[in-house]
Design a protein around this nucleic acid. Structure first.
Length: 601
RNA sequence: GGGGUUGUAGCUCAGUUGGAUAGAGCGACGGUUUCCUAAACCGUAGGUCGUGGGUUCGAGUCCCGCCAACCCCGCCA
């Protein structure tokens, strides 16, 4: 309820200023202390909004909070515009002012909302002065490795953030900063030369599973064998110098991995632009020389570093960010710095972004803190633009430890998703049997895929991303509680009503409500825009999940207590409007989480 | 040793720039189906918000100390 909130804020603020004009002039109180502190009511019985400002004004204006509240309310009661939309305000408790919107106003809003494709969410207008380009950097698997459970959260959370920003009207660039460069390739190429040279010259000779095995072997050789180590380093040098054969081999390895990644992205319905670390290669040297010119670079133990301000390590010495290694190689910090410059530079030499969001695990917080500080000191981040690390916690098993398979290995992402789908399928088959329903194989396949994937995504997103996240198939697929199936079911109920009401919804019908479940649902529906805006600012998709769950609960209460199809006019049409709005809100909300929906399940 | 994050009901978690009697879900217990998919709804029980101070009209929320868990800490990303 953005519009009414802003309107009320202004009106209450004005009421305060008028009511206490003399006191304000006498004591020279600064304006920001007169903030009405209006916010959504903490409980339904308090109405729609509450004004907390009277309490903090008590000290400034030597009066009791209730007296102050009384004066404010008197002013509001004289304001005809205020009276148009609100019932007379009520003073409660130590000095809160409770504001309740008039039913007529709620009806106008809900009708307005029903006609708005964006469901009331304000959409950004193109501003010529400021770039509205945002980069979301997420997923980021490593070439020659399989995507595993560690990539799950970045991929799901990043996608959802990107969707929400896109919806709000930003021009979002979704970047997959894949690990496609560095020592790992030297290792792998050296090893493949020995054991499977054809993989380096011919496409599709080895699949990703083999590559992963080869990579493991290569890593072992690298750690044990000195000769292997040095030839690996040479391979890296060749690669960096652009040696034709090396580049070809590298390309083959990358495309092999890319195919596997794409399968997972297709399954999860995630669109990403691949731009690996190698992309920034041409810009690495200038990062070093420019930092040098700025006088930020210090050579220490053979490595070129920038020492951080205010971040110390052992012995209270400043911690370094290594820009160039003692062997002349570059580091991931160097790549990240080059990436920041490129992303924030105007086209054609850059992306022209103004906000860059990095969705990576919380373990990298220190790294980003360092890199961002260096970028700031080098003045590579323009004013009004910002780079943000959006951290998330570990995926843990039900034992509270890092999620592993029974044999103690990392869980492949594809296995995890397949298992979720299979479990959803089994649940569905059991239920069909129990209810004596007959459904086609296609139906079962489709429903279990949607439910399984929705469950995985929703379980992840519905948790505050900063904390560690306990993964449990049983809980996420559970048919009760704050789960994807619960939300999907609410939508199925609405779809059921829609199927049977095709000709019932009449245009021009008078809209009327008289049940408390109807009003709760209306109020809940009108909160959607507030939630979206909040998520955009805080980048916490769990707030959206929370809202959708509450909306589903409120809807289910409505559904249980208020008949729709059997109601008389004008109530039937009025209720059908609420059903449709709930449906479109749930659908859009789930879509912004990257979750597909169903008509039947 | 330094830094970061976390600590809220038996379990998993919400908790908005500090605001009224701290909320959900699961699990437990008890109810509801002539009616739009009961994968639902209603009710009951369950809390010294890790701990000790401080700031204030008011603290789960802000500040300081302590305890515990996890993560990071120079040439991997």
């Amino acid at each position: 309820m953005q519009r009414i909130y802003q309107l009320l804020s202004i009106q209450v603020q004005q009421a305060i200023e008028v009511a206490f004009r003399e006191e304000i002039l006498a004591t020279n109180i600064s304006k920001n202390l007169l903030n009405p502190q209006i916010m959504p009511a903490s409980k339904p019985e308090f109405g729609d909004f509450q004004v907390n400002g009277a309490l903090s004004l008590a000290k400034l204006i030597k009066k009791s909070p209730r007296q102050i509240a009384d004066n404010i309310v008197n002013q509001l009661n004289r304001n005809s515009k205020f009276k148009e939309v609100c019932l007379p305000p009520v003073i409660a408790g130590p000095g809160f002012i409770n504001i309740t919107l008039k039913e007529e106003y709620l009806i106008t809003e809900i009708i307005h909302r029903a006609q708005d494709e964006k469901l009331g969410v304000p959409i950004l207008q193109e501003e010529s002065s400021k770039s509205n380009r945002v980069i979301v950097d997420f997923s980021s698997p490593n070439i020659a490795k399989e995507m595993h459970v560690g990539h799950l959260r970045s991929t799901i959370i990043g996608d959802s953030i990107a969707r929400i920003l896109e919806f709000r009207g930003y021009s979002v660039l979704r970047l997959n900063h894949v690990g496609d460069w560095g020592t790992q390739f030297g290792m792998l190429i050296t090893h493949l030369k020995n054991v499977a040279p054809e993989a380096l010259t011919t496409a599709n000779k080895v699949d990703l599973g083999d590559l992963v095995a080869f990579y493991r072997q290569a890593k072992q050789c690298f750690d044990i064998d000195k000769n292997f180590k040095s030839s690996s380093r040479q391979e890296v040098v060749k690669l960096q110098q652009g040696n034709e054969k090396s580049i070809k081999a590298w390309n083959l390895l990358c495309s092999q991995s890319r195919k596997e990644f794409q399968k997972i992205y297709d399954l999860l319905d995630i669109k990403l632009e691949e731009r690996g670390e190698s992309f920034y290669n041409p810009f690495l040297e200038s990062v070093v020389t420019d930092l040098e010119k700025l006088g930020l670079l210090v050579t220490d133990q053979g490595a070129q570093c920038v020492f951080l301000e205010g971040i110390t390590g052992k012995d209270n010495n400043p911690l370094p960010v290594i820009i160039k290694k003692s062997d002349g190689g570059f580091n991931y910090s160097t790549t990240d710095l080059a990436a920041i410059r490129y992303r924030l530079s105007p086209p054609p030499k850059g992306d022209g972004a103004c906000r860059v969001i990095y969705v990576t695990d919380a373990g990298q917080a220190n790294h980003f803190l360092g890199v961002f500080q260096v970028a700031k000191r080098a003045k590579w981040i323009p004013n009004n633009c910002h780079v943000e690390h959006v951290p998330f916690g570990l995926v843990q098993g039900e034992d509270g430890k890092k999620l592993k398979t029974r044999s103690g290995e990392t869980v492949r992402l594809i296995d995890l998703l397949t298992e979720a789908i299979n479990r959803a399928k089994q649940d569905l088959i059991n239920r069909l049997e129990k209810e004596g329903r007959q459904e086609s194989i296609g139906f079962v396949e489709e429903v279990s895929k949607v439910v399984g994937l929705a469950a995985v995504k929703y379980a992840d997103l519905s948790q505050n991303r900063i904390t560690n996240y306990q993964f449990s198939f049983d809980r996420m697929l559970s048919l009760q509680g704050n789960t994807a199936p619960y939300l999907l079911y609410a939508l199925v109920r609405i779809a059921g009503i829609n199927r049977k009401s095709k000709d019932l919804l009449k245009k021009q019908m008078q809209v009327r409500f008289h049940e408390k479940e109807e009003w709760s649902l209306i109020r809940e529906l009108l909160k959607f825009e507030d939630v979206i805006i909040q998520v955009e600012e805080e980048l916490l998709p769990n707030r959206l999940c929370n809202y959708l769950f509450e909306l589903s609960q409120v809807f289910n209460r409505f559904y249980d207590h208020v008949p729709v199809l059997k109601a008389e006019e004008p109530f039937q049409s009025s209720r059908l409007i609420l059903c449709q709005m709930t449906g479109s809100t749930l659908k859009l909300g789930l879509n912004l989480l990257g979750i597909a929906t169903l008509e039947r399940m």
